[in-house]
């Protein structure tokens, strides 16, 4: 069995204790998307504002476990100020990191790119979530905010 220290890294606990970008945004201009994890009842509400192809602001509310909350918090910090193309690329890489190669599920966002060792440049703190893969039931917790982000980007693009 994998050790808990693989899961609960210090950075993760830090984001859990002091989550970044908590709150709400006015809609419009922001879009508001709710994501649910039917397994545990966790919910996340994501507010996303895209201006001229750039994520100009993002806020998160809702409740959940340390993994879902810290993943959302790190995600918000990672995408703020990035352009939509970069954000989509980051989502793909993140999902690839979260995939379990052996059983090969969780690939609901198209084919997964082969990724090599996690690139600390792109991932920064997000790399701390890598250990979640060893705890398959928690992968859904880590990917909840990212799936919600995909929906939010689609909705923002449609507006």
């Amino acid at each position: 069995m994998a050790g808990l220290e693989d899961l609960y890294r210090e950075i993760i606990l830090d984001h859990y204790r002091s989550p970044r970008n908590r709150g709400e945004l006015a809609t419009p201009p922001a879009v508001r998307i709710e994501g649910f994890n039917p397994l545990c009842g966790d919910e996340i509400v994501l507010y996303l504002e895209v201006t001229d192809g750039v994520v100009s602001d993002v806020k998160i509310s809702g409740q959940g476990c340390s993994i879902s909350q810290s993943s959302a918090s790190m995600m918000s910090a990672a995408i703020k100020g990035k352009d939509v193309g970069e954000v989509r690329a980051l989502i793909r890489s993140f999902k690839a990191m979260m995939s379990i190669p052996e059983s090969g599920h969780e690939h609901d966002d198209g084919p997964v790119e082969e990724i090599g060792p996690i690139d600390p440049e792109t991932f920064g703190e997000l790399a701390a979530l890598q250990g979640v893969v060893k705890f398959p039931v928690r992968i859904k917790c880590a990917t909840l905010s990212w799936n919600t982000l995909v929906q939010a980007l689609d909705e923002a693009a449609a507006n």
Partner: peptide, 19 residues
């Protein structure tokens, strides 16, 4: 959160339900 509670309990061999 219950998920975190049960994850750490599992490390001690204690099986409970969270959800």
């Amino acid at each position: 959160h219950p998920h975190d509670v049960s994850q750490v309990l599992d490390q001690h061999g204690v099986c409970v339900r969270a959800g």
